[in-house]
Design a binder for these strands. Sequence first.
DNA 1: TAAGATTCGATCAAGAGCAATCACATGAGA
DNA 2: TCTCATGTGATTGCTCTTGATCGAATCTTA
Lengths: 272, 272
Amino acid sequence: MHLQDRWKRIIDELSSERVTSVDELTERLGVSPATIRRDLNELHELGHLLRVRGGAMRSEGKLYSGREEKRSEGLRGQSSFSDSVIANAGAKRAIAKAALDYITPGLSMIIDGGTTTWMMASMMNDDSYNVLTTSVPILQCLLERSRVKVTLPGGELFRDQGIILNPYEDGILQHFAAARMFIGCQALTKNGLMQTDTLLVQSERRLMERASEVVVLADSSKIDAPASLSVCPLSQIDVVITDDGISADAVRWLKAHDIDVRIVKADQAAAA
Amino acid sequence: MHLQDRWKRIIDELSSERVTSVDELTERLGVSPATIRRDLNELHELGHLLRVRGGAMRSEGKLYSGREEKRSEGLRGQSSFSDSVIANAGAKRAIAKAALDYITPGLSMIIDGGTTTWMMASMMNDDSYNVLTTSVPILQCLLERSRVKVTLPGGELFRDQGIILNPYEDGILQHFAAARMFIGCQALTKNGLMQTDTLLVQSERRLMERASEVVVLADSSKIDAPASLSVCPLSQIDVVITDDGISADAVRWLKAHDIDVRIVKADQAAAA
DNA sequence: TAAGATTCGATCAAGAGCAATCACATGAGA
DNA sequence: TCTCATGTGATTGCTCTTGATCGAATCTTA
Protein backbone atom coordinates (compact mmCIF):
# COMPACT_ATOMS: atom_id res chain seq x y z
CA MET A 1 0.00 0.00 0.00
CA HIS A 2 1.42 3.32 -1.00
CA LEU A 3 1.33 6.75 0.48
CA GLN A 4 -1.41 8.03 -1.79
CA ASP A 5 -3.59 5.03 -1.08
CA ARG A 6 -3.16 5.35 2.64
CA TRP A 7 -3.96 9.02 2.59
CA LYS A 8 -7.03 8.39 0.56
CA ARG A 9 -8.20 5.68 2.90
CA ILE A 10 -7.58 7.83 5.95
CA ILE A 11 -9.64 10.63 4.48
CA ASP A 12 -12.36 8.18 3.50
CA GLU A 13 -12.35 6.88 7.03
CA LEU A 14 -12.89 10.37 8.37
CA SER A 15 -15.72 11.06 6.01
CA SER A 16 -17.73 8.35 7.68
CA GLU A 17 -16.40 8.65 11.23
CA ARG A 18 -16.02 12.01 12.89
CA VAL A 19 -12.90 10.95 14.72
CA THR A 20 -10.54 8.06 14.34
CA SER A 21 -7.57 6.81 16.30
CA VAL A 22 -4.03 5.88 15.46
CA ASP A 23 -4.68 2.37 16.74
CA GLU A 24 -7.72 1.90 14.58
CA LEU A 25 -5.96 3.10 11.47
CA THR A 26 -2.93 1.00 12.28
CA GLU A 27 -5.07 -2.07 12.35
CA ARG A 28 -7.23 -1.19 9.40
CA LEU A 29 -4.40 -0.22 7.08
CA GLY A 30 -1.91 -2.76 8.33
CA VAL A 31 1.00 -0.39 8.83
CA SER A 32 2.90 0.74 11.88
CA PRO A 33 1.73 3.45 14.28
CA ALA A 34 4.74 5.54 13.32
CA THR A 35 3.61 5.63 9.72
CA ILE A 36 0.07 6.53 10.65
CA ARG A 37 1.31 9.38 12.80
CA ARG A 38 3.43 10.68 9.99
CA ASP A 39 0.49 10.51 7.63
CA LEU A 40 -1.85 12.24 10.04
CA ASN A 41 0.61 15.03 10.65
CA GLU A 42 1.08 15.68 6.99
CA LEU A 43 -2.63 15.56 6.25
CA HIS A 44 -3.10 18.01 9.06
CA GLU A 45 -0.58 20.37 7.56
CA LEU A 46 -2.28 20.11 4.23
CA GLY A 47 -5.55 20.93 5.89
CA HIS A 48 -7.39 17.69 5.27
CA LEU A 49 -7.98 16.86 8.89
CA LEU A 50 -7.35 18.03 12.39
CA ARG A 51 -4.75 16.18 14.34
CA VAL A 52 -5.76 15.42 17.90
CA ARG A 53 -4.07 13.40 20.57
CA GLY A 54 -4.52 9.72 19.85
CA GLY A 55 -5.79 10.19 16.34
CA ALA A 56 -7.43 12.66 14.05
CA MET A 57 -10.68 14.47 13.66
CA ARG A 58 -12.59 15.55 10.63
CA SER A 59 -12.05 19.16 9.74
CA GLU A 60 -15.69 20.08 10.22
CA GLY A 61 -15.51 23.62 9.16
CA LYS A 62 -15.47 23.28 5.44
CA LEU A 63 -16.06 26.98 5.50
CA TYR A 64 -14.91 26.83 1.98
CA SER A 65 -16.46 24.14 -0.07
CA GLY A 66 -16.49 26.14 -3.21
CA ARG A 67 -14.53 25.43 -6.29
CA GLU A 68 -10.83 25.07 -5.94
CA GLU A 69 -8.99 28.25 -5.44
CA LYS A 70 -7.77 28.87 -8.93
CA ARG A 71 -4.53 30.59 -8.28
CA SER A 72 -3.29 28.17 -5.73
CA GLU A 73 -3.58 24.71 -7.16
CA GLY A 74 -6.74 24.00 -5.25
CA LEU A 75 -6.47 24.80 -1.63
CA ARG A 76 -8.97 22.68 0.12
CA GLY A 77 -12.59 22.04 0.63
CA GLN A 78 -14.21 18.68 0.26
CA SER A 79 -11.29 18.29 -2.05
CA SER A 80 -10.97 15.46 -4.42
CA PHE A 81 -7.81 13.76 -3.48
CA SER A 82 -5.69 15.06 -6.32
CA ASP A 83 -6.05 18.51 -4.83
CA SER A 84 -4.31 17.40 -1.72
CA VAL A 85 -0.88 17.60 -3.22
CA ILE A 86 0.44 21.06 -2.92
CA ALA A 87 3.06 21.79 -5.50
CA ASN A 88 6.40 22.69 -4.04
CA ALA A 89 5.15 22.02 -0.53
CA GLY A 90 8.62 21.89 0.98
CA ALA A 91 9.57 25.30 -0.28
CA LYS A 92 6.24 26.74 0.70
CA ARG A 93 6.44 25.42 4.21
CA ALA A 94 9.92 26.80 4.67
CA ILE A 95 8.78 30.16 3.36
CA ALA A 96 5.78 30.15 5.65
CA LYS A 97 8.03 29.44 8.61
CA ALA A 98 10.33 32.26 7.68
CA ALA A 99 7.34 34.57 7.44
CA LEU A 100 6.31 33.56 10.93
CA ASP A 101 9.75 34.40 12.22
CA TYR A 102 9.22 37.79 10.77
CA ILE A 103 6.30 38.70 13.02
CA THR A 104 6.32 39.69 16.64
CA PRO A 105 3.64 39.18 19.28
CA GLY A 106 0.94 41.79 19.22
CA LEU A 107 1.43 42.60 15.58
CA SER A 108 -1.50 43.62 13.43
CA MET A 109 -1.33 42.14 10.00
CA ILE A 110 -3.24 41.39 6.86
CA ILE A 111 -3.00 37.91 5.42
CA ASP A 112 -4.08 37.44 1.87
CA GLY A 113 -5.25 34.13 0.41
CA GLY A 114 -3.04 31.48 -1.19
CA THR A 115 -1.43 28.18 -0.28
CA THR A 116 1.74 29.65 1.18
CA THR A 117 -0.11 32.18 3.29
CA TRP A 118 -2.47 29.39 4.29
CA MET A 119 0.46 27.38 5.59
CA MET A 120 1.62 30.41 7.46
CA ALA A 121 -1.79 30.82 9.06
CA SER A 122 -1.93 27.15 9.95
CA MET A 123 1.27 27.51 11.95
CA MET A 124 0.19 30.56 13.93
CA ASN A 125 -0.38 29.99 17.60
CA ASP A 126 0.20 33.14 19.52
CA ASP A 127 -3.16 34.61 20.42
CA SER A 128 -1.82 38.10 20.64
CA TYR A 129 -1.77 38.45 16.88
CA ASN A 130 -4.36 40.52 15.17
CA VAL A 131 -5.20 39.33 11.70
CA LEU A 132 -7.40 40.72 9.00
CA THR A 133 -8.11 38.49 6.05
CA THR A 134 -10.50 38.41 3.14
CA SER A 135 -9.79 34.78 2.44
CA VAL A 136 -12.31 32.20 3.53
CA PRO A 137 -9.88 29.27 3.73
CA ILE A 138 -7.60 31.32 5.92
CA LEU A 139 -10.49 32.37 8.09
CA GLN A 140 -11.38 28.75 8.57
CA CYS A 141 -7.81 27.81 9.30
CA LEU A 142 -7.39 30.51 11.92
CA LEU A 143 -10.68 29.60 13.54
CA GLU A 144 -9.88 25.95 13.76
CA ARG A 145 -6.24 26.02 14.54
CA SER A 146 -5.50 29.10 16.57
CA ARG A 147 -6.86 31.59 19.02
CA VAL A 148 -5.67 34.49 16.94
CA LYS A 149 -7.86 37.57 16.94
CA VAL A 150 -9.52 37.71 13.55
CA THR A 151 -11.07 40.67 11.82
CA LEU A 152 -13.08 40.40 8.63
CA PRO A 153 -13.91 43.08 6.17
CA GLY A 154 -17.58 43.22 5.32
CA GLY A 155 -18.82 42.34 1.91
CA GLU A 156 -20.15 39.79 -0.43
CA LEU A 157 -18.75 36.34 -0.41
CA PHE A 158 -17.41 35.15 -3.75
CA ARG A 159 -17.45 31.40 -3.64
CA ASP A 160 -15.26 30.72 -6.62
CA GLN A 161 -12.43 32.85 -5.35
CA GLY A 162 -13.12 32.15 -1.71
CA ILE A 163 -12.89 35.79 -0.78
CA ILE A 164 -15.00 38.47 0.79
CA LEU A 165 -15.14 41.65 -1.22
CA ASN A 166 -16.76 44.92 -0.30
CA PRO A 167 -18.50 46.67 -3.17
CA TYR A 168 -18.43 49.93 -1.26
CA GLU A 169 -15.58 52.13 -0.28
CA ASP A 170 -16.28 52.46 3.41
CA GLY A 171 -16.10 49.73 6.01
CA ILE A 172 -13.84 48.08 8.50
CA LEU A 173 -10.91 48.11 6.16
CA GLN A 174 -10.70 51.88 6.41
CA HIS A 175 -10.21 51.58 10.14
CA PHE A 176 -7.63 48.85 10.04
CA ALA A 177 -3.97 49.78 10.05
CA ALA A 178 -1.69 46.82 9.56
CA ALA A 179 2.01 46.82 10.18
CA ARG A 180 2.49 44.16 7.53
CA MET A 181 0.61 42.49 4.77
CA PHE A 182 1.52 38.98 3.73
CA ILE A 183 0.57 38.21 0.20
CA GLY A 184 0.99 35.29 -2.14
CA CYS A 185 0.79 35.57 -5.89
CA GLN A 186 0.47 33.85 -9.20
CA ALA A 187 3.72 35.31 -10.45
CA LEU A 188 6.42 37.77 -9.55
CA THR A 189 7.97 39.48 -12.58
CA LYS A 190 9.73 42.68 -13.50
CA ASN A 191 6.27 44.07 -14.07
CA GLY A 192 5.48 43.50 -10.43
CA LEU A 193 3.19 41.21 -8.49
CA MET A 194 0.84 39.35 -10.83
CA GLN A 195 -2.45 37.51 -10.55
CA THR A 196 -4.92 36.10 -13.03
CA ASP A 197 -8.24 36.88 -11.41
CA THR A 198 -9.61 40.38 -11.59
CA LEU A 199 -11.49 40.08 -8.33
CA LEU A 200 -8.35 39.06 -6.52
CA VAL A 201 -6.49 42.00 -7.97
CA GLN A 202 -9.20 44.34 -6.82
CA SER A 203 -9.21 42.85 -3.36
CA GLU A 204 -5.46 42.85 -2.96
CA ARG A 205 -4.94 46.36 -4.20
CA ARG A 206 -7.32 47.58 -1.56
CA LEU A 207 -5.73 45.60 1.22
CA MET A 208 -2.30 46.86 0.29
CA GLU A 209 -3.31 50.42 0.96
CA ARG A 210 -3.91 49.55 4.57
CA ALA A 211 -0.50 48.01 5.31
CA SER A 212 2.69 49.90 5.89
CA GLU A 213 4.86 47.05 4.69
CA VAL A 214 4.18 44.51 1.95
CA VAL A 215 5.73 41.06 2.31
CA VAL A 216 5.45 38.73 -0.67
CA LEU A 217 5.62 34.98 -0.13
CA ALA A 218 6.59 33.42 -3.42
CA ASP A 219 8.34 30.13 -3.97
CA SER A 220 10.86 30.21 -6.76
CA SER A 221 8.51 28.66 -9.29
CA LYS A 222 6.54 31.89 -9.20
CA ILE A 223 9.41 34.02 -10.35
CA ASP A 224 8.78 35.07 -13.93
CA ALA A 225 5.83 32.70 -14.16
CA PRO A 226 3.08 33.63 -16.59
CA ALA A 227 0.19 35.74 -15.32
CA SER A 228 -1.66 38.56 -16.91
CA LEU A 229 -2.81 41.06 -14.32
CA SER A 230 -0.56 43.32 -12.35
CA VAL A 231 -1.47 43.92 -8.74
CA CYS A 232 1.31 46.37 -8.06
CA PRO A 233 4.74 47.34 -9.35
CA LEU A 234 7.88 46.06 -7.67
CA SER A 235 8.42 49.44 -6.07
CA GLN A 236 5.51 48.82 -3.73
CA ILE A 237 6.99 45.61 -2.39
CA ASP A 238 9.18 45.75 0.71
CA VAL A 239 10.17 42.14 1.32
CA VAL A 240 10.15 38.96 -0.74
CA ILE A 241 10.56 35.62 0.97
CA THR A 242 11.43 32.84 -1.45
CA ASP A 243 13.40 29.62 -1.67
CA ASP A 244 16.87 28.88 -2.98
CA GLY A 245 15.58 27.91 -6.38
CA ILE A 246 15.55 31.56 -7.33
CA SER A 247 18.03 32.70 -9.98
CA ALA A 248 20.79 35.16 -9.24
CA ASP A 249 19.42 37.36 -11.96
CA ALA A 250 16.01 37.54 -10.34
CA VAL A 251 17.58 38.42 -7.01
CA ARG A 252 19.38 41.22 -8.81
CA TRP A 253 16.34 42.88 -10.30
CA LEU A 254 14.40 42.50 -7.10
CA LYS A 255 17.17 44.17 -5.11
CA ALA A 256 17.37 46.88 -7.72
CA HIS A 257 13.95 47.92 -6.47
CA ASP A 258 15.13 48.10 -2.89
CA ILE A 259 13.41 44.88 -2.00
CA ASP A 260 14.69 42.88 0.93
CA VAL A 261 15.07 39.40 -0.59
CA ARG A 262 15.10 36.60 1.95
CA ILE A 263 16.04 33.18 0.71
CA VAL A 264 15.23 30.04 2.65
CA LYS A 265 16.17 26.43 2.07
CA ALA A 266 13.28 24.22 1.03
CA ASP A 267 12.02 22.05 3.84
CA GLN A 268 12.75 18.42 3.06
CA ALA A 269 10.24 16.87 5.40
CA ALA A 270 7.47 17.68 3.00
CA ALA A 271 5.61 15.16 0.97
CA ALA A 272 5.07 15.06 -2.75
CA MET B 1 -11.78 6.06 24.29
CA HIS B 2 -10.31 9.42 23.50
CA LEU B 3 -11.14 12.90 24.56
CA GLN B 4 -13.01 13.77 21.41
CA ASP B 5 -15.25 10.74 21.68
CA ARG B 6 -15.98 11.35 25.32
CA TRP B 7 -16.91 14.94 24.72
CA LYS B 8 -19.23 14.00 21.92
CA ARG B 9 -20.91 11.33 23.99
CA ILE B 10 -21.33 13.64 26.95
CA ILE B 11 -22.99 16.24 24.78
CA ASP B 12 -25.14 13.62 23.13
CA GLU B 13 -26.14 12.41 26.55
CA LEU B 14 -27.27 15.89 27.46
CA SER B 15 -29.32 16.19 24.32
CA SER B 16 -31.60 13.41 25.46
CA GLU B 17 -31.44 14.03 29.20
CA ARG B 18 -31.69 17.54 30.50
CA VAL B 19 -29.29 16.76 33.32
CA THR B 20 -26.82 14.00 33.93
CA SER B 21 -24.59 12.98 36.79
CA VAL B 22 -20.91 12.25 37.16
CA ASP B 23 -21.77 8.73 38.31
CA GLU B 24 -23.95 8.03 35.34
CA LEU B 25 -21.35 9.25 32.90
CA THR B 26 -18.63 7.35 34.73
CA GLU B 27 -20.55 4.15 34.27
CA ARG B 28 -21.72 4.80 30.75
CA LEU B 29 -18.36 5.87 29.36
CA GLY B 30 -16.26 3.53 31.44
CA VAL B 31 -13.79 6.10 32.71
CA SER B 32 -13.00 7.42 36.15
CA PRO B 33 -14.99 10.14 37.93
CA ALA B 34 -11.90 12.33 37.92
CA THR B 35 -11.82 12.30 34.16
CA ILE B 36 -15.52 13.00 33.88
CA ARG B 37 -15.15 15.99 36.20
CA ARG B 38 -12.29 17.32 34.15
CA ASP B 39 -14.32 16.91 30.99
CA LEU B 40 -17.39 18.57 32.45
CA ASN B 41 -15.36 21.51 33.66
CA GLU B 42 -13.79 22.03 30.30
CA LEU B 43 -17.06 21.67 28.44
CA HIS B 44 -18.54 24.15 30.84
CA GLU B 45 -15.79 26.64 30.10
CA LEU B 46 -16.37 26.20 26.42
CA GLY B 47 -20.05 26.78 26.93
CA HIS B 48 -21.32 23.40 25.85
CA LEU B 49 -23.05 22.69 29.12
CA LEU B 50 -23.66 24.04 32.60
CA ARG B 51 -21.68 22.48 35.35
CA VAL B 52 -23.72 21.76 38.44
CA ARG B 53 -22.83 19.95 41.60
CA GLY B 54 -22.80 16.22 40.96
CA GLY B 55 -23.06 16.49 37.22
CA ALA B 56 -24.03 18.79 34.38
CA MET B 57 -27.04 20.42 32.83
CA ARG B 58 -27.91 21.25 29.29
CA SER B 59 -27.18 24.86 28.50
CA GLU B 60 -30.02 25.97 26.26
CA GLY B 61 -28.66 29.37 25.71
CA LYS B 62 -25.42 28.79 23.98
CA LEU B 63 -25.90 29.78 20.40
CA TYR B 64 -22.54 28.68 19.25
CA SER B 65 -21.25 25.29 20.13
CA GLY B 66 -18.22 26.10 18.18
CA ARG B 67 -14.81 24.80 17.69
CA GLU B 68 -13.00 26.60 20.41
CA GLU B 69 -9.54 25.45 21.07
CA LYS B 70 -8.54 24.55 24.54
CA ARG B 71 -5.05 25.54 25.57
CA SER B 72 -2.49 26.51 23.04
CA GLU B 73 -2.13 23.20 21.31
CA GLY B 74 -4.68 21.10 19.83
CA LEU B 75 -7.80 19.91 21.46
CA ARG B 76 -10.89 20.73 19.64
CA GLY B 77 -14.40 20.68 20.91
CA GLN B 78 -17.58 19.70 19.22
CA SER B 79 -18.25 21.19 15.90
CA SER B 80 -21.36 22.95 14.78
CA PHE B 81 -24.46 21.50 16.26
CA SER B 82 -25.82 18.47 14.60
CA ASP B 83 -29.52 17.84 14.72
CA SER B 84 -29.04 15.16 17.27
CA VAL B 85 -27.69 17.45 19.94
CA ILE B 86 -30.34 20.12 19.64
CA ALA B 87 -32.90 20.24 22.38
CA ASN B 88 -36.45 20.21 21.17
CA ALA B 89 -35.21 19.37 17.71
CA GLY B 90 -38.61 18.33 16.44
CA ALA B 91 -40.27 21.62 17.21
CA LYS B 92 -37.30 23.58 15.96
CA ARG B 93 -37.20 21.76 12.68
CA ALA B 94 -40.89 22.34 12.09
CA ILE B 95 -40.47 26.01 12.89
CA ALA B 96 -37.51 26.29 10.56
CA LYS B 97 -39.54 24.71 7.76
CA ALA B 98 -42.37 27.13 8.34
CA ALA B 99 -39.89 30.00 8.20
CA LEU B 100 -38.64 28.73 4.85
CA ASP B 101 -42.19 28.68 3.51
CA TYR B 102 -42.33 32.29 4.45
CA ILE B 103 -39.64 33.43 2.06
CA THR B 104 -39.83 33.87 -1.67
CA PRO B 105 -37.07 33.56 -4.28
CA GLY B 106 -34.95 36.62 -4.65
CA LEU B 107 -35.62 37.82 -1.14
CA SER B 108 -32.98 39.69 0.79
CA MET B 109 -32.90 38.69 4.39
CA ILE B 110 -30.91 38.79 7.57
CA ILE B 111 -30.47 35.56 9.47
CA ASP B 112 -29.34 35.86 13.04
CA GLY B 113 -27.54 33.11 14.96
CA GLY B 114 -29.25 30.38 16.95
CA THR B 115 -30.11 26.73 16.61
CA THR B 116 -33.49 27.27 14.99
CA THR B 117 -32.18 29.76 12.47
CA TRP B 118 -29.28 27.42 11.88
CA MET B 119 -31.72 24.68 10.95
CA MET B 120 -33.46 27.08 8.67
CA ALA B 121 -30.19 27.90 6.95
CA SER B 122 -29.37 24.24 6.60
CA MET B 123 -32.56 23.70 4.62
CA MET B 124 -32.07 26.56 2.20
CA ASN B 125 -31.36 25.61 -1.37
CA ASP B 126 -32.55 28.29 -3.71
CA ASP B 127 -29.55 30.24 -4.89
CA SER B 128 -31.53 33.35 -5.59
CA TYR B 129 -31.68 34.23 -1.92
CA ASN B 130 -29.55 36.98 -0.57
CA VAL B 131 -28.54 36.45 3.01
CA LEU B 132 -26.66 38.60 5.46
CA THR B 133 -25.57 36.99 8.67
CA THR B 134 -23.22 37.78 11.50
CA SER B 135 -23.20 34.19 12.69
CA VAL B 136 -20.22 31.99 11.92
CA PRO B 137 -22.05 28.65 12.20
CA ILE B 138 -24.68 29.91 9.80
CA LEU B 139 -22.04 31.15 7.45
CA GLN B 140 -20.47 27.70 7.49
CA CYS B 141 -23.79 26.08 6.93
CA LEU B 142 -24.71 28.26 3.97
CA LEU B 143 -21.34 27.83 2.35
CA GLU B 144 -21.36 24.12 2.76
CA ARG B 145 -24.91 23.26 1.91
CA SER B 146 -26.24 25.87 -0.44
CA ARG B 147 -25.34 28.22 -3.21
CA VAL B 148 -27.09 31.12 -1.52
CA LYS B 149 -25.55 34.53 -2.00
CA VAL B 150 -23.96 35.44 1.32
CA THR B 151 -23.02 38.85 2.61
CA LEU B 152 -21.04 39.42 5.77
CA PRO B 153 -20.76 42.54 7.83
CA GLY B 154 -17.22 43.49 8.61
CA GLY B 155 -15.85 43.36 12.08
CA GLU B 156 -14.09 41.44 14.71
CA LEU B 157 -14.78 37.79 15.18
CA PHE B 158 -15.91 36.87 18.68
CA ARG B 159 -15.15 33.23 19.08
CA ASP B 160 -17.20 32.54 22.16
CA GLN B 161 -20.38 33.93 20.68
CA GLY B 162 -19.52 32.90 17.14
CA ILE B 163 -20.45 36.27 15.74
CA ILE B 164 -18.87 39.05 13.77
CA LEU B 165 -19.36 42.45 15.33
CA ASN B 166 -18.39 45.80 13.92
CA PRO B 167 -17.07 48.25 16.50
CA TYR B 168 -17.73 51.14 14.13
CA GLU B 169 -20.94 52.59 12.87
CA ASP B 170 -20.28 52.49 9.18
CA GLY B 171 -19.91 49.45 6.98
CA ILE B 172 -21.76 47.06 4.78
CA LEU B 173 -24.66 46.88 7.14
CA GLN B 174 -25.59 50.46 6.35
CA HIS B 175 -25.95 49.53 2.71
CA PHE B 176 -27.98 46.42 3.27
CA ALA B 177 -31.75 46.60 3.21
CA ALA B 178 -33.42 43.36 4.16
CA ALA B 179 -37.05 42.57 3.63
CA ARG B 180 -37.03 40.25 6.64
CA MET B 181 -34.90 39.40 9.55
CA PHE B 182 -35.12 35.96 11.11
CA ILE B 183 -34.07 35.89 14.69
CA GLY B 184 -33.92 33.32 17.45
CA CYS B 185 -33.82 34.15 21.11
CA GLN B 186 -33.20 33.01 24.63
CA ALA B 187 -36.68 33.92 25.72
CA LEU B 188 -39.80 35.66 24.53
CA THR B 189 -41.67 37.43 27.31
CA LYS B 190 -44.03 40.33 27.81
CA ASN B 191 -40.94 42.45 28.11
CA GLY B 192 -39.99 41.55 24.56
CA LEU B 193 -37.29 39.50 22.94
CA MET B 194 -34.65 38.46 25.46
CA GLN B 195 -31.06 37.27 25.39
CA THR B 196 -28.41 36.71 28.01
CA ASP B 197 -25.29 37.87 26.24
CA THR B 198 -24.63 41.57 25.90
CA LEU B 199 -22.69 41.17 22.67
CA LEU B 200 -25.57 39.34 21.08
CA VAL B 201 -27.95 42.04 22.13
CA GLN B 202 -25.75 44.68 20.62
CA SER B 203 -25.41 42.75 17.39
CA GLU B 204 -29.10 41.99 17.07
CA ARG B 205 -30.29 45.48 17.79
CA ARG B 206 -28.17 46.76 14.97
CA LEU B 207 -29.31 44.13 12.53
CA MET B 208 -32.91 44.84 13.33
CA GLU B 209 -32.61 48.39 12.14
CA ARG B 210 -31.84 47.14 8.67
CA ALA B 211 -34.85 44.89 8.24
CA SER B 212 -38.34 46.01 7.45
CA GLU B 213 -39.94 42.99 9.08
CA VAL B 214 -38.82 41.06 12.14
CA VAL B 215 -39.67 37.37 12.31
CA VAL B 216 -38.96 35.57 15.58
CA LEU B 217 -38.38 31.82 15.58
CA ALA B 218 -39.06 30.58 19.09
CA ASP B 219 -40.12 27.12 20.13
CA SER B 220 -42.63 27.08 22.93
CA SER B 221 -40.05 26.39 25.63
CA LYS B 222 -38.75 29.90 25.04
CA ILE B 223 -42.00 31.58 25.92
CA ASP B 224 -41.61 33.20 29.31
CA ALA B 225 -38.26 31.50 29.81
CA PRO B 226 -35.74 33.26 32.03
CA ALA B 227 -33.33 35.69 30.43
CA SER B 228 -32.09 39.03 31.56
CA LEU B 229 -31.42 41.31 28.62
CA SER B 230 -34.06 42.79 26.40
CA VAL B 231 -33.24 43.06 22.71
CA CYS B 232 -36.46 44.81 21.74
CA PRO B 233 -40.02 45.26 22.95
CA LEU B 234 -42.82 43.16 21.52
CA SER B 235 -44.01 46.12 19.49
CA GLN B 236 -41.02 45.76 17.18
CA ILE B 237 -41.83 42.17 16.34
CA ASP B 238 -43.96 41.45 13.30
CA VAL B 239 -44.21 37.67 13.22
CA VAL B 240 -43.59 34.87 15.71
CA ILE B 241 -43.33 31.31 14.50
CA THR B 242 -43.65 28.78 17.31
CA ASP B 243 -44.94 25.29 18.03
CA ASP B 244 -48.21 24.08 19.48
CA GLY B 245 -46.83 23.86 22.98
CA ILE B 246 -47.49 27.57 23.41
CA SER B 247 -50.18 28.54 25.91
CA ALA B 248 -53.37 30.27 24.87
CA ASP B 249 -52.48 33.07 27.22
CA ALA B 250 -49.16 33.69 25.53
CA VAL B 251 -50.84 33.78 22.14
CA ARG B 252 -53.17 36.38 23.56
CA TRP B 253 -50.52 38.79 24.75
CA LEU B 254 -48.50 38.37 21.59
CA LYS B 255 -51.54 39.14 19.45
CA ALA B 256 -52.29 42.12 21.64
CA HIS B 257 -49.13 43.63 20.19
CA ASP B 258 -50.31 43.06 16.65
CA ILE B 259 -47.97 40.14 16.20
CA ASP B 260 -48.80 37.55 13.59
CA VAL B 261 -48.49 34.31 15.59
CA ARG B 262 -47.97 31.22 13.47
CA ILE B 263 -48.21 27.89 15.20
CA VAL B 264 -46.77 24.72 13.71
CA LYS B 265 -46.98 21.12 14.83
CA ALA B 266 -43.70 19.72 16.14
CA ASP B 267 -41.96 17.49 13.66
CA GLN B 268 -41.93 13.97 15.06
CA ALA B 269 -39.15 12.69 12.86
CA ALA B 270 -36.35 13.16 15.37
CA ALA B 271 -37.54 14.73 18.54
CA ALA B 272 -35.21 14.55 21.48
C1' DT C 1 -27.00 23.85 64.28
C1' DA C 2 -24.11 19.88 64.08
C1' DA C 3 -22.68 15.39 62.11
C1' DG C 4 -22.25 12.51 58.28
C1' DA C 5 -22.13 11.89 53.43
C1' DT C 6 -21.05 13.63 48.83
C1' DT C 7 -18.60 16.11 45.79
C1' DC C 8 -14.74 18.82 44.68
C1' DG C 9 -10.00 20.27 43.39
C1' DA C 10 -5.10 19.50 43.97
C1' DT C 11 -1.46 16.42 43.70
C1' DC C 12 1.18 12.59 42.09
C1' DA C 13 2.39 8.18 39.89
C1' DA C 14 1.59 5.15 35.99
C1' DG C 15 0.74 4.63 31.39
C1' DA C 16 -0.42 6.08 26.69
C1' DG C 17 0.92 8.79 22.93
C1' DC C 18 4.49 11.45 20.79
C1' DA C 19 8.70 13.34 18.08
C1' DA C 20 13.27 12.35 17.01
C1' DT C 21 16.49 9.26 15.53
C1' DC C 22 18.46 5.31 13.54
C1' DA C 23 18.53 1.20 10.73
C1' DC C 24 16.74 -1.62 7.14
C1' DA C 25 14.32 -2.50 2.71
C1' DT C 26 13.09 -1.17 -1.75
C1' DG C 27 13.64 0.76 -6.20
C1' DA C 28 15.67 4.08 -9.58
C1' DG C 29 19.48 5.60 -12.06
C1' DA C 30 24.42 5.67 -13.15
C1' DT D 1 26.34 -3.90 -9.68
C1' DC D 2 26.79 0.08 -6.88
C1' DT D 3 24.92 4.11 -4.94
C1' DC D 4 21.67 7.16 -3.49
C1' DA D 5 17.06 8.56 -2.29
C1' DT D 6 12.89 7.39 -0.16
C1' DG D 7 9.64 5.17 2.75
C1' DT D 8 8.90 2.26 6.72
C1' DG D 9 9.40 0.25 11.37
C1' DA D 10 11.73 -0.01 15.88
C1' DT D 11 13.89 2.32 19.89
C1' DT D 12 14.29 5.96 23.17
C1' DG D 13 13.46 9.64 26.14
C1' DC D 14 9.83 13.02 26.86
C1' DT D 15 5.11 15.04 27.46
C1' DC D 16 0.41 14.78 28.35
C1' DT D 17 -3.64 12.30 30.02
C1' DT D 18 -5.68 9.46 33.31
C1' DG D 19 -6.96 7.47 37.68
C1' DA D 20 -6.21 7.19 42.71
C1' DT D 21 -5.65 9.54 47.03
C1' DC D 22 -6.66 12.97 50.41
C1' DG D 23 -7.99 17.11 52.64
C1' DA D 24 -11.36 20.83 51.98
C1' DA D 25 -15.82 22.47 50.75
C1' DT D 26 -20.68 21.78 50.34
C1' DC D 27 -24.99 19.59 50.81
C1' DT D 28 -28.28 16.72 53.59
C1' DT D 29 -30.47 15.14 57.48
C1' DA D 30 -31.42 14.83 61.98
